[in-house]
Write a protein that binds this DNA or RNA. Sequence first.
DNA 1: CAAACGTGGTT
DNA 2: TAACCAAGTTT
Length: 322
Amino acid sequence: MPSPRAPRPAPPAPADLAHPAGLAPPAAALPPIPALHSSVIDWFDEHARELPWRRPDAGAWSVMVSEFMLQQTPVSRVLPVHEQWLARWPRPAALAAEPPGEAVRAWGRLGYPRRALRLHAAAGAIAERHGGQVPDDHAALLALPGVGEYTAAAVASFAYGRRHAVLDTNVRRVFARALTGVRYPPTATTAAERKLAHALLPEDEATAARWAASTMELGALVCTARAPACVRCPIAAHCAWRLAGSPAHDGPPRRGQTYAGTDRQVRGKLLAVLREATGPVAQEELDAVWHEPVQRARALDGLVADGLVEPLPGGTYRLPLT
DNA sequence: CAAACGTGGTT
DNA sequence: TAACCAAGTTT
C-alpha cells in the first residue's frame, strides 16, 4: 500500500481499485500493480498457445476474423474454419466481392450464422470506407457491423497494439476472482468492471496490449469457469477469491439455456439444409426438417428477415446472393 | 436490460 | 442426462 506521504501522486491503492462497489476488502493486500502485470505477462510469455491469429505475420484481418468466430465459439472449433477462411479471402475486399451467402456457407457449423453475415458486411464497409484496411481506431471499429465493445478493443489491442481495456468473459472472471474476491463476475458487464479494467491498464501501450492478451489467456487456460487450476496460477498467492477461501457463487443461478425445441434449433436445421445445397431448395425439403408447421414457418420467416435466407419466386429458397 | 441468437463438448 | 460453458452483439 502506498504511504500517505508519498512524494508524488501515487496510483490508486489496489484495494480501492478492487472494490469500487464497496465489497469487503481481501484478506491480504495485492502486490504493486506493475508486479501484478509482470507476473501475468511473464506467465503468458511461457505458456501462451500458438494460435494462427497470434503469429507475428498475422494481419489485422486475420485477427478480426478470429474475433468474430470466437464470439461464443471455442478455439478448437474455430481453428480449421479460420484457416480456410483466410486462405479463401486473404483480405476484406476479397470477401466483400462475394455474395453474403458464401460467407454463411463457409461459416459451416460454428453457430450464430448472423456473425458470418455481419463479418461479410464489415468487410464491405472496410473495402468501401477504409481503403480495404481494417481500421485501428476503436470508434471506427465499433461502427462496423458485428463489432461491439469487446471486439473493437480486441482488434485494436491485438492487431495494432493499442491501449484498451479488453473485457471478455475470461478477463472478467480473472478480475472477479483475483481482485473482487468472488467466483463469478456479474451477468452483464458493469460500470465497476470497466472502471477496474481501466485502472489496471498499464500506461505503456505495448505493455497494455500484452496485459490484455495475458489476462485473457490466463482465464482461458488456468482461471477457468468450472475448475480453476490455481496450482498453475501465477497470481494465486494474491487472489482475493482464494484468500477468502474460494467461496461459492452467491448470486442468482448462472444461466441456463435450453435448446431442444426452440426456434433456434429449427433455424439451425433449416440453414443446415441450405448450406449443403448447391442450388435452390424446394419448400418440401425444408418442411422435412421440422414437424410442427407453425414453428417451422416462423423459423424460416425469421431467417429471411435476418437476411440469412433468400426466398425465390418459385417457392424455393437459397442462401442470399445479395 | 432481458432475451434472442447455433453448435457441440464436458461434467 | 440435464446443465453448463465457449474471445459477444443486437434489439
